[in-house]
């Protein structure tokens, strides 16, 4: 694999839900180590694009390559890709019947076949990285939303993914907890992780993004570096959206 080859290549992606075309001919390239932030009004298809990248949604048509692996319907390819792609959800989706530590070690042991001791070491490293090693033996319900989301990030990172996908990671959080999650994400972006982030946090987009992708009604309307996009959006719809959000 060449270093200059992009991490994610999406070509002419279409996703149809019944009569609704959620994603309509989207093509996108994500470079290695870059941070791409997808913004846009709700229902614009941003989350669906993200979920197609690790095949949580099956594309209706179009092609996706992740780290050179062609994502087809072949289950073996899909599981191989998923192990390399971490995902963080809006609703955290921690496993409530397991402790924080077990949440972070489960997939390492089952998918990566790591020993219990090794999995625990890696889990503690990642929990330290997100700032809550002391909660290792707590259950998810004993944590605040922000803490739960940081555990979810640690759980994904413990698999040593090449890519991290974030699906509105702060949308379900109380305002005072948003910063602790964004701080972890900023640190991750600086460490050189390839990230695709769907968010409404424009402050994060400005600070961390290499590329802003603005979507509306299933299409990419505008795309560019944040300093250009935020200062001077070309498209009328992007301008209207920013006016709404930034006030």
């Amino acid at each position: 694999m060449q270093r200059d080859e992009p991490m994610i290549v999406i070509k002419h992606l279409v996703k149809q839900f019944g009569s609704l075309r959620a994603v309509n001919d989207v093509s996108l390239t994500v470079g290695r180590g870059s941070v791409t932030v997808i913004i846009g009004p709700s229902g614009s298809g941003k989350s669906t694009v993200l979920r197609c990248i690790n095949h949580l949604e099956t594309p209706t048509s179009g092609e996706i390559w992740v780290d050179g692996i062609h994502l087809t319907h072949d289950a073996k390819h899909i599981n191989a890709v998923r192990a390399e792609v971490g995902m963080v959800f809006q609703q955290f989706n921690l496993f409530p019947h397991l402790t924080v530590l077990e949440n972070v070690t489960l997939a390492q042991r089952v998918v990566r076949k790591r020993s219990e001791a090794e999995a625990r070491d890696i889990a503690m490293q990642q929990l330290t990285r997100v700032g809550i090693p002391e909660k290792a033996n707590a259950y998810p319900s004993q944590l605040s939303g922000g803490q739960q989301q940081r555990v979810a990030i640690a759980r994904a990172l413990a698999m040593n993914p090449k890519i991290m996908l974030f699906d509105e990671p702060t949308s379900a959080l109380d305002p005072e907890m948003i910063k602790e999650v964004l701080d972890v994400m900023l640190e991750l972006a600086r460490s050189g992780m390839t990230m695709v982030v769907v968010t409404h946090e424009m402050g994060f987009a400005r600070k961390a993004a290499d590329e802003i992708v603005f979507m509306d009604r299933g299409r990419i309307v505008e795309q560019g570096p944040p300093e250009v996009f935020f200062a001077n959006p070309r498209e009328e719809r992007a301008r209207a959206f920013l006016n709404q959000i930034l006030r």
């Binding site: 690790n54 998923r82 971490g86 995902m87 959800f89 997939a107 698999m159």
Partner: peptide, 15 residues
Amino acid sequence: ISKGQMEAARSLGMS
């Protein structure tokens, strides 16, 4: 059990 549980497990590479 909420759909998110299966999605989270699958997204971690579990079959």
